[in-house]
Amino acid sequence: MPGKILITGGSGLIGMRLSEMLIDLGYEVAHLSRSPDKVSTYKTFKWDVKEGYIDENAITYADYIINLAGASVASEKWTDERKKEILNSRTASINLLHRSLRNAEHHVKAFISSSAVGIYGNSGEQLMSEESNSADDFLAEVCKAWESAAWQMRDLNIRTVIMRLGIVLSIKGGALPQIARPVKMMAGAPLGSGKQYMSWVHIDDVCRLFIRAIEDKQFEGVYNAVAPHPVTNKEFTKELAEAMKKPLVLPKVPAFAINLMMGEMSEVILAGQRVSANKVLHTGFTFEYTYVEDALESFYETEKD
């Protein structure tokens, strides 16, 4: 009998798709939200991380908690203020859940949290596994703090799974529409050297992986949530142009131009990670989209201009 899933960050890109897929499988889904009065398809409990408040009914409701909360890394320039928000939005939300679970009678069987492959920093061509060392740039530090907050759940004897997400591909948001915009206007070009690796994953595969982590108790600890075949930025841009049936006209967009526009945030685009999916594959999970051309075609095949 499918159980009750409580999702933080449920109104985000992954949260919305995951909620749909869970409902289709017969699960009950509830979201935690700052403004639960907004019309929502899903049962919604109030929480306010800044105030340290969470409706205790949310905690007693849940069989499983999926944690996707966190301020967007790429939507605004990285001022000191914004960097604080990026970090705190991830750690404070988990700390609040941890405190609430510690103090409540609950029946939560597993806590599944997102993290990101940014933990590996700019790792060049080296293939990174879950055991690889983490870097020490801003995004890596955020990921480390995010994961150590999630590990607290193990003190409560709750099975804890951390998914290090690659670039999640969806046309409804995230990186893909931003990368696709210049290609659509026939001004597409690789970014920076174009040699930096992009470890990507189709949104449906990520959601299937979260669902698998709920259902399969062998999932415990850290997993790279990336498709098995990472590509360079140059290859990605070429495949995207092909899927969109657009030419690639421009030479590369130089790194200094990206730095100029985005400041420190440019490391999101210019740093590359080549990340291994082997640990996930060893669990028996199969990706629906293992090659980037299939993933991109799934979005642009049916699109009419």
Rank of each mutant, 00 (worst) to 15 (best):
P2C: 02
P2N: 07
I5A: 05
T8H: 06
E20C: 04
M21K: 15
M21Y: 03
L22R: 04
D24F: 06
V29N: 08
V29G: 06
L32G: 05
S33Q: 07
R34P: 00
R34Y: 03
P36C: 00
P36T: 12
V39H: 11
F45L: 09
K46Y: 04
K50L: 14
E51F: 00
E51G: 08
D55N: 11
A58F: 04
T60W: 09
T60A: 13
T60K: 05
Y61P: 10
A62Y: 07
D63W: 11
Y64C: 11
I66N: 00
G70D: 07
R82K: 13
E85R: 11
E85G: 10
L87T: 13
R99Q: 15
R99I: 15
R99P: 12
N103W: 12
A104F: 01
A104N: 10
E105Y: 12
H106L: 06
H107R: 11
S113G: 11
S114I: 10
S114P: 10
V117Y: 05
N122T: 06
S123G: 03
G124F: 10
Q126V: 15
S129Q: 13
E130L: 02
E131I: 14
S132N: 01
S132D: 08
S132R: 05
S134C: 00
A140I: 14
C143T: 04
K144G: 10
E147Q: 04
A149V: 05
D155S: 09
L156C: 09
N157R: 15
I158E: 13
V161S: 00
G166C: 01
G166P: 11
I167M: 11
V168A: 06
L169V: 08
I171A: 03
P182M: 00
K184R: 15
K184M: 14
A189G: 12
P190G: 04
L191V: 15
S193K: 00
G194K: 07
G194L: 06
K195T: 12
Q196K: 00
S199P: 12
I203Q: 01
D204C: 09
L209H: 05
F210P: 01
F210A: 04
F210K: 01
F210Y: 14
R212F: 12
D216A: 10
G221N: 12
N224P: 12
V226E: 08
H229Y: 13
V231A: 06
E239I: 04
L240V: 02
L240A: 02
A241Q: 07
M244H: 06
K245H: 11
K245W: 08
P247Q: 01
K252N: 09
A255W: 04
F256M: 08
L260M: 14
M261Q: 13
I269A: 02
A271Q: 09
G272Q: 03
Q273K: 04
R274K: 14
S276A: 08
S276W: 05
N278D: 14
N278Q: 12
V280M: 06
V280D: 01
T290A: 12
T290L: 09
L296W: 00
F299R: 00
Y300Q: 07
Y300M: 00
E301K: 15
T302M: 13
T302E: 14
